[in-house]
């Protein structure tokens, strides 16, 4: 019987189901979310999707948060049949963020993972075509990171702080190098 209004499952309840199927996949359990081990995140997500109680058939959204010391990839997963929603997080190393892709489980993840890769620089291993979504390939850095504008040398925000290839041609250096590829 579906709930009348969407029920937010507490982290402990989600953790219990994951722990039963895959011990060792959990790093931390909070009130509102559970934190998964990155190494076994894909298997844990498969449990979340196929578990009859959690029934996470619908990936509501996928995004990322820069937590200075690490980068969290945040998943909101929902069950349309039972009308509940819960939250999972996969932490990644700040210097070399790498998280397994969930595109094999949910088709809807592939564009959102490309967005996270583009703006936050998280590499999703196993993604079918991990390229930048919004920005062009030569764009320096990943803008949603908190240290994006605090580049070495105390540079301030604004286009002048980007490395110039041809000094004096202001603005030209940010055009895509290969017009027509859209990259």
């Amino acid at each position: 019987m579906p709930h009348a209004a969407t029920l937010t499952l507490p982290g402990a309840q989600v953790a219990e189901r994951i722990r039963a199927a895959l011990p060792g996949a959990l790093r931390d359990v909070q009130d509102a979310f559970v934190v998964l081990e990155p190494a076994s995140a894909l298997e844990a997500m498969r449990v979340v999707r196929d578990d009859p109680v959690l029934d996470g058939k619908f990936l509501v959204q996928l995004c990322s948060v820069d937590m200075i010391t690490r980068i969290d990839v945040v998943y909101h997963v929902s069950s349309l049949a039972q009308n509940h929603i819960f939250e999972l997080k996969v932490p990644a190393d700040h210097e070399r963020p790498e998280v397994p892709s969930v595109s094999p489980l949910w088709v809807g993840a592939w564009l959102q993972e490309r967005e996270v890769y583009d703006l936050m620089g998280v590499t999703f291993t196993g993604h079918p075509s991990l390229t930048r979504l919004f920005l062009w390939d030569q764009f320096p850095g990943h803008p949603l990171r908190k240290d994006f504008m605090s580049l070495p040398g105390g540079q301030k925000s604004g286009l002048s702080q980007f490395p110039k290839q041809v000094p004096g041609q202001s603005g030209q250096e940010f055009r895509p190098k290969q017009p027509g590829t859209g990259a």
Binding site: V60, C63, L144
Partner: peptide, 13 residues
Amino acid sequence: RWHVRAPSLINLS
């Protein structure tokens, strides 16, 4: 952090 779950983008998947 301010993230938007944009239905237009996800419907394009």
